[in-house]
């Protein structure tokens, strides 16, 4: 997994000073309620955002975030610190979400064979046509909306790779596909997002 940006907020920094993550983990192992909440507060946005981006559903995302933290707290006594706590939690959260998607019968990776032609869901080539330029003008909210519109199979790979920073070999293990398939799905997801963003732009221009 690629290293995440160190962008601690003032509040998190302040709380981090008061109780470090390592100290909170040790206290949580003893059943300390405050320590549980400190750990939750440190990681809630990352876990919830992952759940929300993967499901595109607020209620489901809250349920899954809750489930991920509960699983974490139930197992926290076994955490020995060999890996980063955040890595452990995020991997656990990914598993909770993927399990949920599988239970719902949604594909965590698109079922289409990437080597075959005639792909109905693939983005249309639009070389040489009049185009709405996107570069330099994509904001977070528009991208978020476009990600919600992605087919679930594409969405999972895009969120895991481009949002959460997992490498293709990790994604292949997590979702059970080949590395080549992960790369191919990611490319198609990005191309689909590009189309969706252009559609948004065109609709907005039409309303104006």
């Amino acid at each position: 997994m690629r290293p995440e940006k160190k962008t601690l907020t003032d509040r998190r920094q302040r709380r981090g000073d008061e109780l470090s993550e390592a100290a909170a983990i040790e206290r949580a192992k003893q059943g300390d309620a405050e320590a549980f909440q400190v750990l939750y507060d440190m990681h809630k946005r990352r876990v919830y955002s992952l759940c929300l981006r993967m499901t595109a559903n607020t209620a489901e995302a809250e349920d899954l975030a809750q489930e991920a933290f509960l699983q974490l707290y139930r197992k926290i006594a076994t955490f020995r610190g060999e890996s980063a706590f955040s890595t452990w939690l995020h991997r656990l959260s990914v598993n909770v979400v993927l399990m949920h998607l599988r239970k719902k019968g949604l594909p965590v990776v698109s079922l289409e064979e990437t080597t075959q032609g005639g792909d109905d869901d693939s983005p249309k080539k639009d070389f040489g046509t009049e185009d709405v330029a996107l570069a330099g003008s994509i904001d977070r909210l528009h991208l978020q909306k476009a990600v919600e519109s992605l087919p679930p199979g594409y969405r999972s790979i895009f969120v895991l790779h481009d949002v959460e920073g997992y490498e293709h070999n990790e994604i292949a293990k997590i979702v059970g596909c080949s590395i080549g398939n992960s790369k191919s799905q990611l490319h198609k997801a990005r191309m689909k997002l590009r189309d969706l963003l252009k559609l948004q732009r065109a609709e907005k221009a039409g309303k104006a």
């Binding site: 995440e4 809630k44 919830y48 955002s49 969120v159 949002v163």
Partner: peptide, 8 residues
């Protein structure tokens, strides 16, 4: 920017 961008 979507990472950790939503608050439960």
């Amino acid at each position: 920017e979507l990472r950790g961008s939503a608050e439960p």
